[in-house]
Design a protein around this nucleic acid. Structure first.
Lengths: 210, 210
DNA sequence: CAATTATGTGAACGATCGGTCGTTAATATA
DNA sequence: TATATTAACGACCGATCGTTCACATAATTG
């Protein structure tokens, strides 16, 4: 009978703190996030953090881990449930857009808010972020290559090139939707990738028309 | 004989402070930028700011203004010197990429760093940013529409849609080049827009082949 | 020349930052 | 039951934040 009472309560609050941290970080960044405000949001005292994490950096690392897991479940997961090839690629894009549209995170996207903060600041947090983003990019490239192998995208497609385009068109929804366009940017991002894929797909009937 | 000695010196230091502010803000954002570090970088005392600006917010507003002017000169300007139509549109994209590649600002792009900070924080600074980004987006749309009118892009082109794509593909260079891809993302961004424009252009010879 | 204005300094302010410490109460372990 | 562990707290630390103030100096104005 391990992990009961005190132990379990620790795990619970640890998770709620991390969840709050990821949500707040999607708004004001991982460093802009202050322990005081996070404590208030999580309903604990400031010093309670240091029972779970050595310092702010350790919490940031765990927050990145948490965000990666959330992204994998809610964006990568749905894509893997679609048939491999062009349809899976587009399903990935749509799952991302749905993640944004549903407002899962108050700031839209954890990784977007955090990349802008850490792209010029060396350290373990940046290293962890770079690894996460590399794996994400690599994942898209693999889906593209797979679609080519399956004959659902023409041979001339460069996976790295197409992966960049899909990622860029999806990620910029965050800025555009929050600053001026509103939901129109979701439509633009969806149409852009859809038409691009249809143009490269020998059998466009695999993808929705619009 | 006005604006000499004291007056002129004030204008000069005002400009150097603003220039430093825009550079630093491109790295750590407009709010992450602290007056203390800015003072050190500009070689003045912290309290010198308040002779020029009422508070930090006023300095931020002027920094935005300064960044807009720099962007207009170095990105919009070169585009306007290219012949109207598809070539001007691509010249705009290339001018932006050159701005990034040349490392004009240490953080890559002022607006990118700042949008991520203010997209969730209301206030006059955010309002000014929104206006600037709206005008930028509107400018791209106008160039697209002009190219359609000139018959250099097919009629079916939706200006807002294509403007979103061009902007997104260009802006994401900042993240990708600083976090993993390096200069490869510049190539991807260039090729993506070039091929997209060539596909929509009745006379692709107007644009470079690669 | 006298009065005013503008640039700039250095010390200090209250607030907040990340982080430490000593302590308490509840739980797990032996 | 006796003894460690553990989660969580409130108080407090030095540093830094944006900002204010009194003051000095130099240039402009009347």
């Amino acid at each position: 009978m391990e992990q009961d009472g005190r132990r379990l309560r620790g795990l619970r609050s640890r998770e709620t703190i991390l969840q709050q941290a990821v949500g707040l970080a999607s708004v004001e960044g991982l460093d802009g996030l202050s322990l005081g405000r996070l404590a208030a949001a999580a309903g604990v005292s400031k010093s309670a953090f240091f029972a779970h994490w050595r310092d702010k950096e350790q919490l940031q690392l765990d927050a990145v881990e948490w965000a990666v897991r959330q992204w994998t479940e809610q964006v990568v997961g749905p894509a893997l449930r679609a048939p491999a090839g062009a349809r899976r690629l587009f399903a990935l894009h749509e799952a991302r857009l749905r993640f944004y549209a549903d407002g899962v995170l108050p700031g839209g996207c954890f990784f977007f808010a955090v990349q802008a903060e850490f792209d010029d600041r060396p350290g373990v947090v940046r290293d962890r972020l770079v690894r996460a983003m590399r794996e994400w990019q690599e994942f898209i490239r693999r889906l593209v290559a797979e679609a080519v192998t399956l004959g659902e995208l023409v041979d001339s497609v460069d996976p790295a090139q197409l992966a960049y385009e899909i990622d860029a068109l999806g990620e910029m929804v965050i800025i555009h939707s929050r600053l001026y366009d509103g939901p129109a940017s979701l439509v633009h991002a969806r149409r852009a990738v859809l038409q691009r894929l249809r143009a490269l797909c020998p059998d466009p009937a695999l993808l929705p028309e619009d």
